[in-house]
Nucleic acid binder design. Structure first.
Lengths: 354, 354
DNA sequence: ATGAAAGCGCTAACAA
DNA sequence: TTGTTAGCGCTTTCAT
C-alpha cells in the first residue's frame, strides 16, 4: 500500500463557498448551479446562468476538486508517469521535461491537471489510475517491455517514444527509422565509408532499433559494405560518450564518422575526441539525435537529427484529450500510433573523411 | 473560474474494493479498517491489524484519494507551482527540473503526491490551495514581488530561490551573495582589474541583486576601482549571452573578465566571443553560475559557481514535510529561510588578463 | 480497542 | 428548464 504519511491531525474545516451557498443566494437548486459551473448550459436558461455566474464570482467560488472527483468518478487529472531507476529520481532528460511541461500547458488550457508521479513497480500504474480516478495517463521514458506488461483499463494511455504492442496504449514518437536514414545518408554523402553507430543496448525494434535499422539501410544503399557499418553499445550520457571518444582511435581505428543516438552522447563523444587529440570534423565526423539546444552550444556545433518536440507534445496532448472526451472506456481499441517527422540540422560536426 | 473541460459523459462506477468490503470480510467496522490503513495502529489490536492487512492485500485494496481528501480536508498533495510567461509553457530551466523532480522523489517516499501546475494569475495560487485541499505549496521561479503579493493561508509554502519578505513563505536558496563573492575573488585573484557582471534586470535584493552585491564587494576588497566593476543587463539565455559576446569588445573594450549569472548565459557568451574571433580565457575570462552539466560540455570547460542542487531539493522537501506534519495552520509563523552553500568549480574558462 | 452516526461537496438519475 | 433524491468512499466525532 506504499508508505503512509500520517500521524498528525486533520485540518480545520475551511470556510468555503460551496454550490449550496450560491444556490441559496440565487434562489435556485444546487443542481442548477452545478450545471452552470460545468458548462452544461444547454440545460439552464440564460438569465439563470448569468445570475448564478455573477453570484459565484462575487462570493469567490472555487470548485472542490476532490468532491467533484468522488461524485463523478472522474478527476480531470492526467498523470504523467515516469519510471524511477536506481537513484529513484525522475525528470532527468531535457526531453522528458519538454514533454511533461508542454503537456501541462495544453491540458491546463482545457481544464485538466497534471499529476507527476514516479513509478517504482508496474502495479503502481493501475493503482494510481484507480485511486485517483484518473482521466488519462501519459507514460514517459517507459521501456517497451514494461509498457507491454502494463494492465491499465478504462482510461486512455499515451506512451511517449514507444513502439510497444500493447493495444490499450497509443504510442507517440518521432520517425526514428527515418531519423537513422537521414544520419546515414548524410555521412555517406560526405564520403564516409567506415561508420559507427553508438547507442544504448536494445531489444527488439524500439526507438534505438529503428534508428539503427534506418541508419544501416541508408549506409548500405549508399554503397557501404555491411562490415563497415559497425554498432557499439554505450549508455546515453555525456560521460559515456566522452569515454568512447577517448578510445575511439584504438577501438575503431578505421571509423571516420559516428552517429550517436542522443545529443548528450554525441557532445560527450566530441569532447572525448578532442581530449584525445583528435578534431571534429577533421579526424572524425559526428552526428547526433534530438536537436536539443545543447547541440548549438558546442564548438563546432553538432549536426543532429532534430525531433519536432512541440509537435510531439501537441500531438500527444491532442490524442489524450480526444480520447478522454470521446469517453474511451474499457471497450474501444486505442487509436493508431503516431510518428512525427524529423529533419537534419546542419551545424558543423560533419565533414569529409580524413 | 477558468476553462471548463466537460461536455462528455461520466464514467461507469468502477468496481472497486473499498474499506467496507474489507470490514465485512474481517468482521470489524469500517473505522477499524480505516485506522489500520492510516497507520493509526495505536488504536487497533495487533491481531486485528494483521487480519485486516491480509484481507486488504488479498482483495487488492487501493485507497480512494478523492474520497479521503474530501472527508479529511487534506489531500496529501503538494503542488509545484510555476508561473507561466508569454509562451505559457513551463519547466523550462534545468534548475526547475531538478527541483520538481527531486521533490517528487522525496515527497513520494513519505506518501505525498505532486501536482504540477502553471500559474497564470496570482489568484490561482490561493484557488488551487482551496480547491484541492492542498497540503503544501512549492513556488518555483516566482519573482520576489509576486511571492510578496500572494495571499496564501493555512498551508506551508516554500519558495525556491526566493528572498521575498512574505512571512508565510519559507525561502530556500543558495547563498547568492557568497556565490558572487567567489566569482569576484576568483577573477580578481587571476589579476583582472576591469570586470563585468552580466545578469538579468532586477529590483531589490533578490537572487541577482545579491550575486551582484557579493561580486562587487569581493572585487572592491581585492582593490579594483568601483568604476571598473561594471554591470550589464542581459536576459538569461544562450542567445542573449552570445549577442553580448559578439559585441563585448566594442561595448566594453577594457573588460578582461565577465561573471555571468547563469551557466546558459555564460556558455552563450563564450560562443559569442569565439564567434567574434576572441578566445576564452586568452582574451576574456568567463565565469558562470549554477554548475549545470552543461558547463562541463564546452571547450574550454566553464568555470562556475556551483549550487548544491541535491541539498537544496532535500532541504526544501524537509522543510515542507516538517511543516505539514507539524500541522502548520493559519497561525504559526513560517520558519527561517535557508541558504545553502556554494562552491567554485574550476574548469578552464578563467585565466590571467590579456 | 472498536463501533455508529453524520457529513465532506459534489454529481447522476430521475421526476416535475 | 428546474428540483429532488441518493449516494460517491472516506474520516470525524462521540459513544461504548
Amino acid at each position: 500500500m506504499g508508505p503512509t504519511a500520517d500521524e498528525e491531525g486533520p485540518r480545520d474545516p475551511p470556510v468555503t463557498v460551496k454550490l449550496s451557498d450560491i444556490a441559496d443566494e440565487a434562489g435556485v437548486s444546487v443542481m442548477t448551479v452545478s450545471n452552470v459551473m460545468n458548462g452544461k448550459r444547454a440545460k439552464v436558461s440564460p438569465a439563470t446562468i448569468e445570475r448564478v455566474l455573477a453570484i459565484a464570482a462575487r462570493l469567490g467560488y472555487v470548485p472542490n476538486i476532490p468532491a467533484r472527483s468522488l461524485a463523478a468518478h472522474r478527476s480531470h487529472i492526467v498523470a504523467a508517469l515516469v519510471p524511477v531507476g536506481e537513484n529513484n529520481s525522475l525528470l532527468v532528460s531535457p526531453h522528458t521535461v519538454a514533454v511533461v511541461g508542454g503537456m501541462e500547458t495544453h491540458l491546463r488550457h482545457r481544464g485538466y491537471h497534471v499529476l507527476l508521479r514516479g513509478i517504482e513497480h508496474d502495479d503502481q500504474v493501475a493503482q494510481t489510475v484507480r485511486g485517483w480516478s484518473l482521466d488519462g495517463v501519459v507514460l514517459v521514458e517507459f521501456p517497451d517491455e514494461q509498457v507491454d506488461r502494463l494492465e491499465v483499463a478504462g482510461v486512455p494511455v499515451v506512451a511517449i517514444d514507444s513502439y510497444a504492442a500493447n493495444p490499450r496504449v497509443v504510442g507517440v514518437r518521432s520517425d526514428d527509422h527515418e531519423g537513422g536514414r537521414l544520419a546515414g545518408a548524410r555521412l555517406a554523402a560526405a564520403g564516409h565509408r567506415r561508420v559507427l553507430f553508438a547507442g544504448p543496448p536494445y531489444r527488439g525494434m524500439g526507438v534505438v532499433g529503428r534508428r539503427w535499422a534506418g541508419f544501416r539501410a541508408a549506409c548500405l544503399e549508399a554503397g557501404l559494405r555491411a562490415d563497415d557499418v559497425e554498432a557499439r553499445e554505450v549508455l546515453t550520457s555525456f560521460e559515456d560518450g566522452r569515454r568512447l571518444g577517448l578510445r575511439l582511435r584504438r577501438d575503431h581505428p578505421q571509423v571516420t564518422a559516428v552517429f550517436a543516438t542522443a545529443d548528450h552522447l554525441a557532445v560527450g563523444l566530441m569532447a572525448g575526441i578532442a581530449e584525445a587529440g583528435g578534431s571534429v570534423p577533421g579526424d572524425v565526423s559526428v552526428i547526433g539525435f534530438d536537436g536539443l539546444d545543447l547541440s548549438a552550444y558546442t564548438t563546432p556545433g553538432l549536426t543532429t537529427v532534430a525531433q519536432d518536440m512541440p509537435a510531439k507534445v501537441a500531438e500527444a496532448s491532442r490524442i489524450m484529450l480526444e480520447q478522454i472526451e470521446a469517453g474511451r472506456g474499457l471497450d474501444a481499441p486505442a487509436r493508431e500510433p503516431v510518428s512525427l517527422g524529423v529533419h537534419l540540422v546542419e551545424r558543423g560536426s560533419v565533414g569529409p573523411p580524413r
